[in-house]
Computed example of a mutant assay.
Amino acid sequence: MAELFVGLMSGTSLDGADAVLADFSGGAISVLGHASAPFPAPLRAELLALNTPGGSDELHRAALAANALARVYAEVTAELLKSTGVPAGSVAAIGAHGQTVRHRPLEFDGVGYTLQLNNPALLAELIGIDVVAEFRTRDLAAGGQGAPLVPAFHRSLFSRPHEAVGVLNIGGISNLSLLPAGSAADGTVLGFDCGPGNALLDHWCQTHRGQPYDANGRWAASGKILPDLLAQLLAEPFFSRQPPKSTGRDLFNPDWLADRLQGRQNAQAADIQATLAELTASACAADVLRHGRGEVRELVVCGGGALNTHLMARLAARLPGVEVVSSAERGLPPQQVEAAAFAWLAHAAVRRQRGNLASVTGARGARVLGAIYPA
């Protein structure tokens, strides 16, 4: 019998929601279908605004944005089921991560908090399928960062018995999983956020070109890297911190960038874009080299950044001797990997299997992740 789960993901790039239908009946994940839906412009603008503290009536606005997000999730799930011909009653559960608007683990009171806007009860009501959500909070309660959560899934999908592999997800924020050869034991896997992925690139492109992203990195490729600015950006203390570590738009946001661009009013916008692309490539490559201990010979890239040919080229240039490939070359298209991860996490939650890796998040141990909202 099929064990069908839907995974939903809307990441820090804020471009929309991806959904996959996954079958676990063979013992491993098999993706049967994919659907995506862009965010309506007002919802995207509101989600972006809610990433910045200090706005008026935030609680009210956040609640309504969560309702709107649940409706987008329901629509993309319905489209996915229609396209695959699978009735809702055949799906065991949906894994819905929600939209992160704050991530401050271990801060303030020793536990901190992480906030993902979502209304899983509404989603369950709209689609008629059990929903698993709130994946990060249990890891935080156990003393962890609550992120990244995908390395356990990366291990199940991409690890190899005789070769170390790196898996780099480049969404709004970039995160890296390092999978040593034969990484069956939890303690051997490392995973952490590297820093900005597409978030600053997309912001700069929207501001100066009126486009939501730099297609194929063509605009960045037309500019020249500003070495002194790159060095200033890389001086951010987050880059030199040891894992476990995670971050988000709380740190890498337009204000962070504006502070570091003071006095550079005469710089060409394309050169800033080229430097921001180099910032992403440099930070990610440095982490592969520093924490991969020279063992990684292949870096599998997923997320929207894998579609940016300029960014992929810059990664390859900074990683001589490492083959940089899209996850599509290893069996799963880049924009399906994270959604598939949350189908995997939902499957684990329903079976009461542990979903985090303490070696990644710093939690006191492995935990079952997620809260279940019955249909």
Rank of each mutant, 00 (worst) to 15 (best):
Leu168Arg: 00
Ala215Asp: 14
Asn253Trp: 09
Gln211Arg: 14
Leu64Ser: 13
Leu123Arg: 01
Pro334Ser: 13
Gly362Cys: 09
Gln99Phe: 10
Arg241His: 11
Ser30Met: 04
Leu149Asn: 09
Phe158Tyr: 15
Val167Leu: 07
Arg260Gln: 10
Val20Lys: 02
Ala277Glu: 01
Gly187Asn: 09
Ala28Asn: 12
Thr77Ile: 09
Pro333Ala: 15
Leu251His: 12
Ala121Met: 04
Leu4Ala: 07
Met1Gly: 13
Tyr113His: 14
Ile173Arg: 01
Asn51Leu: 13
Leu257Phe: 07
Ala181Cys: 01
Glu298Phe: 02
Leu149Cys: 08
Ala185Trp: 06
Ala316Leu: 10
Gly166Asn: 07
Leu251Val: 15
Pro148Thr: 03
Gly292Met: 06
Phe252Asn: 05
Leu32Gln: 14
Ala285Leu: 03
Ser174Arg: 00
Cys205Tyr: 06
Pro120Trp: 05
Pro333Phe: 00
Gln265Arg: 13
Leu332Trp: 00
Leu43Met: 11
His97Leu: 10
Phe135Pro: 11
Gly263Cys: 04
Ser13Phe: 10
Glu3Cys: 03
Ala65Val: 05
Arg160Cys: 09
Asn67Cys: 13
Ala346Pro: 12
Leu315His: 01
Lys82Ser: 15
Glu125Leu: 12
Thr207Glu: 14
Val165Asn: 04
Val101Phe: 04
Ala133Glu: 09
Ile94Val: 15
Thr361Tyr: 06
Ala66Asp: 04
Ala65Cys: 11
Leu345Ile: 08
Val360Thr: 08
Cys205Arg: 12
Arg293Ala: 15
His34Leu: 07
Asp202Lys: 01
Ala35Thr: 02
Asp15Thr: 03
Arg264Tyr: 05
Tyr113Ser: 15
His162Arg: 13
Leu200Met: 05
Glu295Lys: 14
Glu125Tyr: 05
Gly210Met: 06
Leu59Met: 13
Ala235Arg: 03
Ala121Ser: 14
Arg44Leu: 11
Pro161Met: 09
Val132Arg: 02
Phe108Lys: 13
Glu338His: 05
Ser30Thr: 14
Asp250Leu: 07
Asp271Ser: 04
Glu329Lys: 14
Ser222Arg: 12
Leu332Gly: 08
Val296His: 05
Thr114Glu: 06
Gly191Ser: 07
Ser240Gly: 12
Leu115His: 08
His203Thr: 01
Ala270Gly: 04
Glu107Ile: 07
Ala348Phe: 07
Val288Lys: 00
Val76Met: 09
Pro38His: 10
Gly197Asn: 05
Arg61Gln: 11
Arg138Met: 11
Tyr113Gln: 13
Leu50Ile: 12
Ala270Lys: 11
Phe192Lys: 01
Leu178Met: 01
Ser56Arg: 12
Trp219Ser: 09
Gly172Trp: 03
Val300Met: 02
Ala63Tyr: 02
Arg218Tyr: 03
Ser10Gln: 03
His103Val: 08
Met9Glu: 08
Ala17Cys: 15
Asn169Arg: 04
Glu107Thr: 14
His162Gly: 07
Val368Gly: 05
Tyr73Met: 06
Gln232Gly: 11
Val167Ala: 12
Ala78Thr: 14
Arg351Ile: 02
